[in-house]
Write a protein that binds this DNA or RNA. Structure first.
Lengths: 220, 220
DNA sequence: CCTATTAATTCTGTATACAAAATACAGATC
DNA sequence: GATCTGTATTTTGTATACAGAATTAATAGG
């Protein structure tokens, strides 16, 4: 008899390092622009430089660290220009995800989306940012799953990692929050109508508005 | 007096390896699905395993190789499903590039584009695939430069690497070639009109047609 | 006291070494 | 003859070692 693979927890060290470091970077613990001393970090994590260097290469591919030959690694800065470059791409890909999702959405998906939207509104009214973010993330995940394009999911996740750091730096304004909730209502209606083109356009605008809100806070 | 950095040619080995390996993979010399023995490859390139492994990590991030823990690296397969996932993304991003480009195109850019289009038509009539491809690539590059979004350029380059391998496997049909030339004429007219929305839509369709042509050849 | 040059130190890039896991192989058992 | 089990070999994962470049400290000269 054949047992299930059972996913034994034996994972390479550098994979753990990638996840841990990504978390530290996205959360801002490792500050943008700061130099990464390989020796220091590998000492701190109790590993040798070899797996650490491999992890840094992965993170460099994601754009979270910058590798300069013979000069080592630094945590990638996140400039206004970076955001202005990333957000239109994010918008285009979210729009694509929306369009693709509309072709696959089941009635059950839409019902779940409506439930999440209710939670989102409720969290907003309660001023509960944590639950709002959770519902928001769940909605995005639902759309991505319906889009059924793993490569698209992966690319969006990577892009999101780049810009998420900026959101950790600023706190959402009351006006922007209310506007976002309103936009989500429109998103839901397009979703329920399975109107791919409209959903795509709305998601694109939604992302563009996010960028403007962010930029307004980062520098006048 | 301070001399310019002068871009000394001292590049890390793994960067060279990345480029060389990418070339071998894209051209099909390293066949999809084949296992990559670290020792064997590092012996062949006369380097140690350390830089080779770092190069493999970079290529894994690009999606050209697949790393399985404790089981090593294999050259990524390129399935019909992979193409069906990658092309819509390629289309969305090319469309975005077109839209962005329209906002920045100078008269000189448009003049150069028209010249390239003429070369493209000429090469097609002469049956000169090499020059056609060159003109085609130059046109794409022109649009990307006008789009002025380095991140977008980088992502498109990476995506292109994924699908380019498939194009090395099949040869373009006469009908598809003629259609592509016709589509390029429409692209040019949208570009001359600086009609971003239209250009985006056309580029998207153009990519979708490419996918269909490819799929038709890979399997019926 | 400041600048320029040089020496010392630190850090990266690469090679090698070793441990553990995976694979291949051989013999044993049914 | 096929399958299972234990051993040998190969291969990956990680650590350490060493050479050379980059940075910093130190010293000499103005």
């Amino acid at each position: 008899m054949q047992l299930e693979p059972l996913t034994l927890p034996r994972r390479p060290l550098h994979d753990d390092l990638v996840e841990h470091l990504r978390d530290l970077i996205v959360r801002g613990t490792l500050a943008p622009g700061s130099k990464v001393q390989e020796q220091a970090l590998s000492d701190q994590f109790q590993v040798s430089r070899t797996p650490l260097r491999e992890a840094l290469r992965s993170l460099a591919a994601e754009g979270l660290v910058v590798l300069t030959p013979r000069r080592g690694a630094t945590i990638a800065e996140i400039t206004r220009r970076d955001l202005e470059e990333a957000f239109p791409i994010l918008g285009a890909l979210e729009a694509l995800a929306g369009e693709l999702a509309c072709g696959n959405l089941t009635d059950d998906d839409i019902a779940r989306a409506r439930t999440l939207q209710a939670k989102l509104v409720q969290a907003h009214e309660a001023g509960d940012l944590a639950n709002y973010s959770a519902a928001n993330a769940a909605l995005h995940k639902l759309i991505l799953q319906a889009a059924a394009n793993p490569l698209l999911s992966k690319m969006l996740k990577s892009l999101d990692g780049r810009v998420r750091r900026a959101r950790y730096m600023v706190n959402i304004s009351g006006a922007r929050w209310a506007a976002a909730v309103a936009e989500h209502e429109v998103i839901l209606s397009a979703l329920e109508a399975r109107d791919g083109r409209k959903l795509g356009q709305i998601l694109k605008d939604h992302i563009a508005n996010k960028l403007n809100a962010l930029i307004g806070q980062i520098d006048g």
